[in-house]
Computed example of a mutant assay.
Amino acid sequence: MDRIDVSPEMVALVGSGHAEPAGVAMLDHGFLLGFGSVGTAASMRLIRRPSVADLNVDSGNRLVLLARSDTCEKVAGGPIRLSFDTAYYLSAPLRSIALAIRDCTLHEAAARPYRLAKSIELLCEILRVANEIGFIPIGQDAVLSQADSERLLRARAMIEERWAEKLTLDMIARACGLNRAKLTRGYRDMFDCSVADAIAQERLGKAGEMLLATELPVSSIGYRCGYLNNTSFTRAFVRRFGVAPTQYRTHRLAA
């Protein structure tokens, strides 16, 4: 594999054959990217402290980014929202950057800085997508197709953006191109909560912020957060935070 020494904090390995990451013991995060082929999705896995065996599970065409964990968290602005050893779909834009590194045809003097810069861009984009959008896990049982997984991500984004509206399962399903059953089951499988729970989490999280940041009456905050009456808002708030909205505001502001 070709080796691109980006910096003391990052190395990229690209191509086919044996990967031998000599002298990179401090680079304890490995992003393993597969380019995919007909019938096989492009993929990515994050490995903690990758061994030589981890990097050579597949000897075919691939790209590996090795970086220090503290560097990754600094670029990401916090912990990386990826699970170790989980295979994720690699989106088309990220695959394009990876292919640009692999297939660079510039002469040697120009290819080195080009591939170096593209390697940095790829790492930054992976970390941005992980923390802002999220990657789609490749299901082991293949219950969800990549297309359906992307529709479920759109459903999550819709809930995060339109939480104050009167959202229903049918409305979300239609907007995202899913049937109601696939939305219900798929959302729970992918995000480990129901659609209703996700909406409630968004609404009550915003309500908690508004209780501390504004002087609006509790009833007004509840209404703005999608609750039609103060009783239903208070009941839901107590289930989420363990105290009523008024007590939450009083105790948190006095702390």
Rank of each mutant, 00 (worst) to 15 (best):
L27G: 10
E9V: 10
L211A: 08
L82H: 10
F191D: 14
A92V: 12
T250F: 05
T105S: 15
L82S: 11
I126V: 15
K118A: 15
Q140F: 08
E73K: 03
A175M: 00
K182L: 09
D192L: 11
I126S: 05
D58F: 06
R95T: 10
A164G: 03
A109D: 10
R180I: 11
L13K: 00
A92K: 12
G23R: 01
N61P: 05
L90F: 07
V6L: 01
I97K: 03
G226A: 13
M10F: 05
E160P: 01
R81S: 15
A19S: 07
L55T: 00
A87S: 13
L123S: 02
S145Q: 08
C176R: 01
I80L: 12
A76W: 02
A181W: 01
A53E: 15
Q247V: 04
G60E: 07
V24P: 03
L228T: 11
L66D: 13
L106P: 12
A42E: 03
M1I: 04
S59I: 11
I136W: 02
Y89V: 11
F35I: 08
I120T: 12
L116F: 13
T214M: 12
L82K: 11
Y223A: 07
G34E: 02
L55C: 08
G226W: 11
V38G: 04
